[in-house]
Design a protein around this nucleic acid. Structure first.
Lengths: 357, 357
DNA sequence: ATGAAAGCGCTAACAG
DNA sequence: CTGTTAGCGCTTTCAT
């Protein structure tokens, strides 16, 4: 069943059917009604592939992620899809699982399906592959690691803001021995977090000397706390480069019978969904996945509209901020001296720390 | 740049280019090589939409889920995509977010993009919508809730097996007061789990009388433990209808200062990824998401091959089984009498309980 | 073994 | 305002 069938039954031309379906205003309401009746009766659905072929636009956005099982992504994908639905787009998701072959394949698949734009959410992508995309003028948006090439949009993350809030929150709770569990050294985003930590500590006169390098996974967090426990003077609070690390730290704390937050304050980074479900719920620096997805989608849409001509900067920014939950409390040493039963007294969903500086 | 461009440059016809690209064996190796050289030089990627239009097969499988943020799905999606890549398919993912409008839209999108098959992983789908798909003979595979219609494949879940293992595991740990936190009563899958619990308890002479109804979310689990705590004689172990519920009871236990597993054994159901990351890691009944995805994909593939003619049953089964982690231990009453430091002595990844009956 | 040509289902000029 | 028609980029008979 195709457009001709509809045309025949409605006794009009295919052009009219096409116009009616696409709600071209100049079509006679009478005819339009007749067409729609037949369409509904037969349950006709236009073949979008054919439409794409002639229009040259597929109305598909590609989304390249590293792994679906990375807890950072579900929220992003969901938001992206919601937006896609609203805008009559489809999404083509692809994962690289950190395999160069798969990355190449991802790019190839995007091109073969003629996507109208692609958001690249994998942390790092080979320069050469991009060429294929850029060569075909496919709108691109990166997060944080965008190459310094004109014509590709980039969403820059402001790590400093959230990390500063986290450090100051801990300091306000009288912690002075604050450790940091860093991420893999080769990750640009992990490095940036670590730098932000150093700056934030220095700003308030604390020395950022307890830094352990982890791996952004649970195991690294566990190992980090073991190392930290061996120190002559142990930290009373630990800030982690991402949530999985924080979860590892909490797990290890549990195993060592250290109660969080009473015996140790823990702060994560990312605010993955899981962070709400840990015991205790994790206080963490939020990098809003919803917001990120929204910006990415909008960036692609913009890129398509302004049609390459506009030479704007195509830079977007996403800021981070602390979300208070229940994994932080007063420094235990201080706590015995006061009557506070944890810092939990006035929990609000967002940090209400005074603006830094 | 299209197939004609390649044909021109390689000085052959478009037909030959097409054949070469599709590796039709009858094409002269000389020519094939010439074609490939040009293809590589120009970085030509065939337009798959055009190909789909003529071949009538899109090589896209649809995947309808309820929400991406449901922790049950990431693993499934990842596996499904891996399989898709292997088989040269693309996947079109759609979420219903439990909204009838979105469900309808999902179906429409699938049809408009002419998917070659769709896996429906949402728990429940309106009969009427399916008609559209079935009418067009789109291969379908359901999980657990497949309608009793011929021509659609269904993956049936064997809940009994895993739940029996869980109950017997708890019984072996000397628990006799085992509670069950059920899921929403309108969910077929939740009902089945609850029944399996009753049967399993009865089988070993325990009476399944502590059943609280939850909601398959964290909150329900928390509420359940509160209720349970008010009972004159409290349970020493609780089996939950899904993992989120179990996480809720663990959270509540933490808040009430009950240590898991020493003070209370907790078992979940599903084995979502998160279950490995809770404190303590959750012992749970696994319903392998990988396996589920594999079966679903294969079912679709089969459906396409045997081309509707075969009147087989198209029923698949996925069994469940217990995964031991660290949220269960001996009944505390018994524990003081023995020297066991928890049942954790001989943990293996899979339950080694004797086969039931 | 290769090429010419007829479509796949739709949209967009162009005419009327 | 509506219909005719020429493609969109590819595959696939059917001749050669």
């Amino acid at each position: 069943m195709d457009i001709r069938e509809i045309a025949r039954r409605a006794k009009v031309s295919t052009a009219t059917v096409s116009r009616a379906i696409n709600r071209v205003p100049t079509v006679d309401p009478q005819l339009a009604k007749r067409v729609w009746r037949v369409v509904d009766e037969l349950g006709y659905y236009p073949n979008i592939q054919a439409r794409a072929l002639v229009s040259g636009r597929s109305r598909i956005f590609g989304l390249i992620v590293s792994e679906f099982t990375n807890p950072f992504f579900p929220e992003i994908v969901q938001t992206f899809e919601n937006l896609a639905v609203e805008n009559n787009y489809e999404i083509l998701i692809t994962s690289t699982v950190n395999d160069p072959k798969r990355m190449e394949l991802s790019v190839r698949r995007m091109i073969e399906r003629r996507v109208d734009g692609v958001a690249i959410l994998t942390f790092g992508m080979e320069e050469g592959l991009l060429e294929h995309l850029r060569y075909r003028k496919v709108p691109l948006v990166f997060v944080d690691v965008g190459p310094d090439v004109r014509g590709v949009a980039n969403i820059r993350i402001n790590y400093q803001n959230g990390i500063r809030q986290a450090v100051q929150h801990l300091a306000a709770l009288r912690h002075t021995r604050i450790a940091f569990v860093a991420g893999p050294p080769h990750l640009k985003s992990a490095l940036a977090r670590r730098e932000a930590f150093k700056i934030s500590m220095t700003e308030i006169g604390l020395s950022p000397d307890m830094i352990i390098v982890g791996d952004h996974r649970l195991e690294g967090g566990m190992r980090a706390l073991i190392e930290l426990s061996r120190l002559p003077v142990r930290p009373t609070a630990v800030l982690c480069s991402n949530d999985m690390t924080a979860i590892g730290v909490m797990r290890q704390a549990y195993d060592q019978n250290i109660r969080v937050p009473e015996g140790l304050s823990v702060v994560g980074f990312d605010d993955i969904r899981l962070a709400e479900f840990t015991t205790p719920p994790l206080t963490t620096v939020q990098m809003s996945q919803k917001e990120l997805a929204r910006i990415a989608f909008q960036a692609l849409l913009n890129e398509i509209e302004c049609d390459s001509s506009s030479h704007e900067r195509h830079e977007y920014e996403l800021t981070t901020s602390l979300v208070l939950r229940r994994s932080t409390a007063l420094d235990p040493a201080e706590r015995s001296a006061t009557s506070a039963k944890g810092a939990g007294g006035s929990r609000s969903r967002n940090a209400s720390a005074p603006p830094p500086r």
